[in-house]
Each structure stands twice: as structure tokens, then as C-alpha cells.
Design a protein around this nucleic acid. Structure first.
Lengths: 111, 111
DNA sequence: TGGCTGTTTGGTTATATTGCCAAATATAAC
DNA sequence: GTTATATTTGGCAATATAACCAAACAGCCA
């Protein structure tokens, strides 16, 4: 990997990494349904305000979401809806994994 | 987030997390072009054999790649090609980010 | 101004990840 | 069997992440 190529992969990986946390993934999907202020994310996540805020800043830093202050509240929204098109593929991966585990389990029974 | 929902997001996040490392992302894209043995990945990555092997096991554990031993070598291949359809979206995110940085830069000049 | 609400930032601690080295394992060749 | 090659595993040190608490900040209202 050359230096330039390395930079590109660093940049791409950063986006995946940002999505690679259950809380951030949840937030991202939530925002796919429409903008939301921090205060409305805190409760369903049952996490500290500061924790949610930090997760949001990771997503923002990655270019996935954007924020807009309105009054006392900050509204976050999904900047790149195309990300969501990927979810069915991710779910396929999970289904495969489950299926394989089941195969493993049933073949054990047979043996 | 309920417990079940949490499990689903953990599972999904695991896949993103696996892709969230430049080396693993590079490997994934490489394997999208066709199967490859570990020995042929080590050189272009300029990393230790054991390092590459560990990255591959993360990808395998996530259900993204699969391996097949043939002789002395282990061949890895991409299990879910649909992942690659996502890359153009990821590149869009990066382009946006670059564009915004440039805007920031040029607006500074004006001010 | 002072206080209240929503949000971010800083600090700390616990935990996870990464990358290298050395050692273990597996398969092929001699 | 011994040796050589390909790969995985275990261990360790450096670094990065995550979550919470407390403190700072920003905007509104009395």
C-alpha cells in the first residue's frame, strides 16, 4: 500500500469505524427516519447525556451526520442516506452466520 | 433499546467494526477481486504475517470472508460481495468532507 | 442579572485493539 | 523422520475507546 492509498483507506475505514458501535449504529438508523435532538436520543439509549454527545461527535467527525443548533437544542440529521442501503446486506451477513451456527449445531447432533 | 434490539445492533456493529480498519478494508476490497492466499496479502501490506492473519480472522469471525485450506496455503475469499456496493457511498462521504474543508479554507481567505 | 435547560468538554478509569515477536501447528518435500 | 514453508496462536507493550462524573458553556426566561 502506497502512502496515498493508505490515506484513502484510513479515510474509508474511519467511516466504517464510526458505524462500528451499537449505539452509533442505532443513532444513525434513528436519524435515517428524520432529524432528532440530543435530548430525544438520550432516553431510549439509557445512556449519559455526555456519552450520547460524544457518539454524535464521532459520527459528525466522520461526515455521517450534521448538526444544527436551534434555540437551546441541537438537532442532528443523517447527511448521507445512501448508508442505509447497506443495511440489508449487513443483515444478510448476520443471517448467514446464524444459519451456519445452526448447521454446526445440527451436524453435532447427527454425529 | 431493548435487550433483543441491543443484540441485533451489536451484531450489525460487529460487521462495521471489522471493516473499520484500513488494513482489513484493503484486504476486503482485494478479495472482492478474487480469492487470495495469506502469503499474497502480506507483501503488499508490508505487515507481519501474524498481523495479517489476525486481521483475516477478525473478518472471518464477522462473517465477511471465508477460508479454505489447499495444500500449505489458506485461501481467503469474500463471502458477501454486496458489501462492495457500499463503497461508492463511502467515497461520497469522503468527497463531501474534502469539499467542506476546502470551503472552510476559502471562506477564511475571504474573511 | 440570575437561574434553568440542553449540550459539550475535560478528566479518570476500565477495557479493547493493534502490531510485533516468538513459539506452535500443519502440510509438503526430501 | 527431518526440514522447509505457510499459517495460526499466545504474549506483551503501546495506544485507542468507552462510559461516567463534574465542570464549563450557550441560549432562553423571569
Amino acid at each position: 500500500m502506497k502512502k496515498e492509498e493508505k490515506n484513502l483507506y484510513d479515510a474509508k475505514a474511519k467511516i466504517f469505524k464510526a458505524l462500528g458501535h451499537p449505539t452509533r449504529l442505532w443513532i444513525t438508523e434513528k436519524l435515517a427516519q428524520g432529524e432528532c435532538c440530543v435530548c430525544n436520543l438520550v432516553e431510549p439509549l439509557a445512556a449519559d447525556f455526555s456519552t450520547v454527545s460524544k457518539h454524535l461527535s464521532v459520527l459528525k467527525e466522520a461526515g455521517i451526520v450534521e448538526d444544527e443548533k436551534r434555540g437551546k437544542q441541537v438537532y442532528y440529521s443523517l447527511k448521507v442516506p445512501c448508508l442505509m442501503g447497506f443495511m440489508s446486506c449487513v443483515e444478510d451477513v448476520i443471517e448467514n452466520r446464524i444459519r451456519e451456527h445452526m448447521d454446526l449445531f445440527s451436524s453435532r447432533k447427527i454425529v
